[in-house]
């Protein structure tokens, strides 16, 4: 029997008074494309940030590829992992940010090669040819030597996807990847993500693009106030929602 790639169990997370995640449990299966939808503040972004440990959970546990994240269990107690070990665990996930966060002092190509050469210590030659191949895959072979400031938002986000893929992650996390884009640039980023989904990558996508969710997602998860309200096939959740809150959200969005 296959095991889930990500297993989230009873995870809670607060920022001061505000409870961002309330006792969330969820499985993500290998090869699955999951879209997380919900209003801002519903906890979907926080859930992604907890999976790659940019946010530290208060309680509960997250397992990635069978390995407990951020802590080690020893004689009935949890011990925090060192920064180095957390860095190693992060390599299994790739993250794409809402605001791209490309390194502005490096070219598109250098953004992609930075991780493999500096963190994984791989040979520059080999990484370079892989990076050029990734740029070709996201349709930006001609922009290898451009700096981020010389690229449009859509191009920057595609470089950011290539940068995440260069680390050969098992899981790709997308945090509202098209929210900061002009409407006419959204399509080119979604096309790259569709191609990635087709190639069998496991993906968790926080998005407001319901059309994308309907077309690509294997499962849609609707979150509200830090909890999962409803989940299921895209056609069910988006087409025939059962929960009142889901219905209200969908009618407000469409």
């Amino acid at each position: 029997m296959t095991k889930p790639l990500v297993a989230i169990r009873s995870v809670s997370k607060s920022f001061g008074e505000f409870q961002a995640l309330k006792n969330v449990s969820l499985d993500v299966w290998p090869g699955e494309v999951m879209c997380l939808i919900g209003a801002s503040g519903s906890g979907k972004t926080t859930l992604l940030r907890c999976i790659n440990q940019l946010a530290v959970i208060d309680s509960g546990g997250i397992w990635l590829d069978g390995e407990l994240l951020g802590v080690r269990e020893q004689s009935g107690k949890l011990h925090r992992l060192s920064e180095r070990e957390i860095g190693r665990q992060r390599l299994k996930t790739g993250m794409v940010f809402q605001r791209f966060n490309l390194f502005p002092h490096k070219t598109a190509l250098e953004n992609i090669t930075e991780g493999p050469t500096q963190v994984q210590g791989r040979k520059a030659e080999e990484v370079r040819s892989e990076a050029l191949e990734l740029l070709r895959r996201v349709g930006l072979a001609a922009k290898a030597d451009s700096y981020p400031a010389q690229l449009s938002g859509g191009q920057q986000q595609r470089v950011a996807i290539a940068r995440a893929l260069a680390m050969k992650p098992m899981l790709m996390l997308f945090d509202e990847p098209t929210s900061a884009l002009d409407p006419e640039l959204v399509g080119e980023v979604l096309a790259v993500m569709k191609e990635l989904a087709k190639s069998g990558m496991t993906m968790m996508v926080v998005t407001h693009e319901l059309g994308f969710a309907r077309e690509v997602a294997d499962r849609v998860v609707y979150m509200d106030q830090g909890a999962i309200v409803e989940q299921g096939r895209a056609s069910d959740v988006l087409g025939a929602p059962r929960e009142e809150r889901t219905k209200a959200f969908l009618s407000a969005v469409i």
């Binding site: 940019l54 860095g87 992060r90 996930t93 490309l102 390194f103 995440a164």
Partner: peptide, 9 residues
């Protein structure tokens, strides 16, 4: 965050 996300300490 982007640096951390590609595994940098």
């Amino acid at each position: 965050e982007a640096a951390q996300a590609i595994g940098m300490g």
